[in-house]
Amino acid sequence: AEDTGLRVELAEEDDCSNSSLALRLWVEDPKKLKGKNKDNEAIEFSFNLETDTPEEVAYEMVKSGFFHESDSKAVAKSIRDRVTVIKKTREKIPAGC
């Protein structure tokens, strides 16, 4: 996966039972982003695997002032990559984590 300069991780342990995830995103390499942002702050948010989309969350972050609009795609991609990994992990593990 292309390095966006952003890091997204689970903010809480995934118990695999909930469709809602707690994720945390922060800037790892500010040089890879086009806009100005704070690289010492992490943003924690919930992401519902069934109803939310990475683009929607990225848009909300841009509108909330965390990122510049030009970085919206990078933010969405970072979230999507992490969510994809989490979904694949859940598929591999039998019921219950």
Partner: peptide, 27 residues
């Protein structure tokens, strides 16, 4: 560490906190 809460108009809550030093070093 200080926490700041930002609520988007769509209702999603963003909680801002400092990135722990250890995570910055890892990356």
């Amino acid at each position: 560490s200080s926490l700041t809460q930002v609520v988007h108009s769509a209702g999603r809550r963003f909680i801002v906190s400092p990135v722990p030093e250890s995570r910055l070093q890892e990356s």
